[in-house]
């Protein structure tokens, strides 16, 4: 029974919410515009740190600090986009993956008076929690946590609606056109560079909202929250749900996170105790953390073989690539 409740609470947890936002942002960049952003972790990091430092070190009010976080993220997107978006697609991939690592190391090792090294920044959520309307626990979640969940999932809904509105418009059509063949779009008189930049900034900003939710949920930000594998988990979620679909990233993030929690709980149950179901020479309970990723990996391989377009994808579209 606690396996099921554990899985369900993972599905609606703060983590699932910020993964959702990161995946929605990546969906704008990769799913619709075809931009290979391999540094989504960096966008989350800058959003989270920008907000956290603005409150912790400069004592800015909440919304001003949010604006700082988003502003820094937009700046990062511009800095990455200006030199690379005129070049072939792979250069953006190289630049973003490198930038994300540089950002993580930068936060971990420099300006210790602001970023506090590897311990990270903490103690910046007092303003946010002071307007928390919940004063007792809801559905087993602590009030502070539940408040972050409410805000996080609201942001997920709002950004999804915004992306949906954009993608059904001629603006979204240009994005999909650029993904298919940017020279064709250019030949029709569209400023492809500007549109790619808009997609990079928008996707980065939605990702930064995810970083914000992460920061609020943990009440701290550490460099290790933004390892490169964060980006790849987000990619996995997006492809699992189906890229270039509105519900793709949301479904992917929730299911991936819930499945990870479920498999972890099951494996823990099977390996714990004096006489565990899985013999200890095969696997012990402190290996659960890694083995669950293996199981998830296997499931994803099966999915890619039998449903390469993701859960919400359209098989006909994938078939076109094979021509």
């Amino acid at each position: 029974m606690d396996i099921i409740t554990g899985t369900l609470s993972a599905a609606v947890s703060v983590q699932a919410a910020y993964f959702c936002l990161a995946a929605i942002g990546l969906n704008v960049q990769f799913g619709y515009a075809g931009l290979l952003n391999f540094g989504q972790a960096g966008f989350l990091a800058v959003g989270a740190y920008g907000f956290a430092v603005a409150v912790a070190s400069f004592e800015l009010p909440f919304f001003a600090a949010v604006a700082v976080g988003l502003g820094c993220t937009a700046l990062l997107a511009l800095l990455l986009g200006i030199p690379t978006l005129r070049l072939r697609a792979d250069y953006l991939a190289i630049a973003t993956i490198a930038a994300a690592e540089v950002i993580r190391l930068f936060f971990g090792a420099t300006f210790r008076e602001y970023f506090k090294g590897r311990d990270g920044v903490s103690g910046f959520t007092a303003d946010f929690q002071s307007v928390n309307p919940f004063d007792s626990s809801v559905l087993g979640f602590r009030p502070g946590e539940f408040w972050v969940m409410v805000v996080g999932w609201t942001l997920v809904v709002l950004s999804s609606v915004f992306v949906w509105l954009l993608m059904r418009s001629p603006w979204g059509r240009i994005m999909k056109g650029i993904r298919e063949d940017e020279d064709a779009v250019r030949s029709l008189g569209k400023n492809v560079y500007s549109y790619k930049m808009q997609a990079l900034v928008l996707g980065g900003l939605i990702g930064a909202l995810g970083g914000l939710v992460l920061a609020l949920g943990q009440n701290s930000v550490q460099p290790d929250n933004f390892n490169a594998d964060l980006t790849f988990i987000v990619y996995t979620m997006l492809i699992l749900g189906g890229a270039a679909r509105i519900f793709g990233p949301i479904f992917g993030a929730i299911v991936f996170w819930a499945a990870l929690s479920f498999i972890g709980a099951v494996l823990t149950k099977l390996t714990r105790g004096d006489d565990p179901f899985i013999p200890s020479w095969l696997m012990t309970d402190n290996q659960v953390g890694s083995v669950r990723f293996m199981v998830v990996g296997l499931c994803l391989m099966a999915l890619m073989i039998f449903r390469p377009q993701g859960v919400f994808g359209d098989r006909k579209e994938i078939a076109l690539d094979a021509r």
């Binding site: 001629p170 603006w171 240009i174 999909k176 056109g177 298919e180 064709a184 779009v185 008189g189 690539d321």
Partner: peptide, 25 residues
């Protein structure tokens, strides 16, 4: 030939006109 494979024929056509209001963010 550069057609946009995963857009419908009609969407390919609609991409053509310049000065579309809906193309502004």
């Amino acid at each position: 030939t550069k057609v946009l494979s995963k857009l419908t024929v009609l969407e390919n056509m609609r991409l053509g006109p310049t000065g579309q209001r809906g193309e502004r963010f």
